[in-house]
Each structure stands twice: as C-alpha cells, then as structure tokens.
C-alpha cells in the first residue's frame, strides 16, 4: 500500500520526536544559560558572596544538576511511549505497534546509554555556551544512525546467492537470499508490479531495499533511520556496484572477488 503522506511528514515527525524527548530540558537549559549570560548585570547588583555561588554553579553544574536532568529525560521517554510510537510509526513504516513498543524498550536503553555518555555534563555546558547544535540532535543521530548491516547479490531467477557482505553473523546466507527472492516475488505478485524495484520491505528490525539490475538484484539491509542523504549515496553506490558486476561477468563466478568488490564500494567508501 502506498501512503503518500509518509515521506512528506517524515522529517516533521522526526522533529516531533525530538521535541518530545528533549524540549522541556532544552528550555531549562536555555533559561539557565540566559541567567549565566546576564551574570555581569547581576554582579552589579549583588554582593561577591552570591557572585561566588554563581561561579560555583557554573563550574559545577553537572554535579549539581546532571543526575536530575538525565533522570527527567528517562522519565519522559518512559511516560510518552504512545507519543513516541505515534512519532516513530510513519518513519519505521508498517511494523505492528506491538513490535514497536517492544523495540522502544530497547531504544530507551540505547538512548539512556547515549544520554549518560553525552550528558557527562561539562559537555552540555560547553555546547550551551557555544550555542550550537542541540544535544537532542547528537543523541538522536547516534541512536538512529543508518548502518548497512547486510548486502546480498542474488541471481534474479534462482534466488541463489552470488556474493554478500555481513556486519553480523547470519548462519545460512543462502537461505536468507532464497527467502528474500521469495518475499520479493510474493510482494510483486501480490501487488501486480512485476519488474519494478521493490523497496522498504521490513525484515525483522532491518529495512530492506532491493534493486533489480537485469540478471541480478542487490538487496541491502539497513538499520537505523534512513535519511534521504543516506539513501542517495546508497543508490549511487549500488548503481556503481551493479555496473561493475555486469560489465565483468567473472564476478558472477568468483564469490571472493565479488565480496571484496561489495565491501570496497558499499562499506569502505
């Protein structure tokens, strides 16, 4: 099924997610920063003892407030699960809600970890005073960074694996490539779109994209949130890879050689 609204809203939704996760705290930071910046004004009006306190506060902000801020973000994620699902749903596509909720538990852990790392909080102050990127950007970028996990070069008709790349360790890649062919054929049949490229199939936690190139097709499984920038680069690289393989057919009969080519073009690039 096609949902034209999804793509248009994608970035927007992502913003919502960011807001959800970190707005309150950002506002706290901003008002705190404003106060600090007005230190000179304050100094004129109050005595040096208070002045000292302010210096102490500034220097030891993490110690004073770090735990509370981290905790408040954690609580917020926990308490806004429904909204997070809402925000994530169009991004992650047609995954069932139940699955997303299970994923959010993992996601929360991952975010917490990143928050714990990032909010080691001298960093926060540094960034606040620089007034540059928000921490939300940093956190989210790390959690959702798109990563190519698996690449399969598959014979179009047979479903047999010709070459591959893997970041993890899938036991029987031949079987996976067969399943991918079957899923692809099934979907094409079901939607009567034979010959068309099929993208964005969900396969467990991966986002699959499959592109047809004549006698082969290339499937990639990516984790994280796929940005348009990432997608463009991937698409360019896939075209380059396919061109090389189809020009020099020895790749089709030499798995090691092909595997190296895949890694060179798609991963190490």
């Amino acid at each position: 099924m096609r949902e034209t609204t999804v793509d248009n809203k994608k970035d927007n939704r992502f913003e919502i997610l960011k807001e959800l996760l970190l707005t309150d705290d950002r506002q706290k930071f901003e008002s705190l920063r404003d106060q600090f910046l007005e230190k000179d004004k304050i100094r004129e009006n109050i005595n040096p003892v208070v002045d000292e306190k302010i210096d102490d506060l500034k220097a030891n902000f993490p110690e004073h407030f770090g735990d509370q801020i981290t905790e408040s973000i954690k609580v917020q994620i926990r308490e806004s699960q429904d909204e997070v699902v809402e925000a994530l749903y169009p991004i992650m596509g047609k995954l069932v809600k139940k699955f997303i909720i299970a994923e959010i538990t993992k996601l929360t852990e991952s975010i917490n970890q990143t928050i714990n790392d990032k909010f080691s909080l001298t960093q926060i102050l540094k960034r606040l005073f620089k007034g540059k990127r928000t921490d939300a950007d940093d956190v989210l970028q790390e959690v959702f960074e798109p990563v190519i996990e698996e690449v399969f070069v598959i014979g179009e008709k047979t479903g047999l694996l010709i070459g591959s790349y893997s970041r993890g360790n899938i036991a029987d890649k031949d079987m996976v490539s067969g399943m991918l062919t079957a899923i692809k054929s099934f979907a094409e049949d079901a939607f009567k779109k034979e010959g068309q490229d099929l993208e964005d199939i969900k396969f467990e936690t991966f986002q699959l994209s499959m592109v047809n190139y004549n006698s082969i097709y290339i499937a990639t499984a990516t984790s994280g949130v796929i940005t348009s920038e990432f997608k463009e680069e991937l698409s360019d690289n896939l075209n380059t890879l396919a061109e090389k393989i189809l020009r020099d057919r020895t790749y089709l009969n030499d798995e090691d050689k092909l595997n190296k080519l895949i890694e060179d073009i798609l991963i190490l690039d």
Binding site: G155, E156, K157, T158, G159, L160, T181, A182, S185, F186, E188, D189, A190
Partner: peptide, 9 residues
C-alpha cells in the same frame, strides 16, 4: 504461489 517461485529451479 507466485509463478516466479518456479523460475531458476
């Protein structure tokens, strides 16, 4: 059963 399943066997 998609016809494509039979291909390449």
């Amino acid at each position: 059963v998609p016809k494509a399943y039979f291909l390449g066997s």
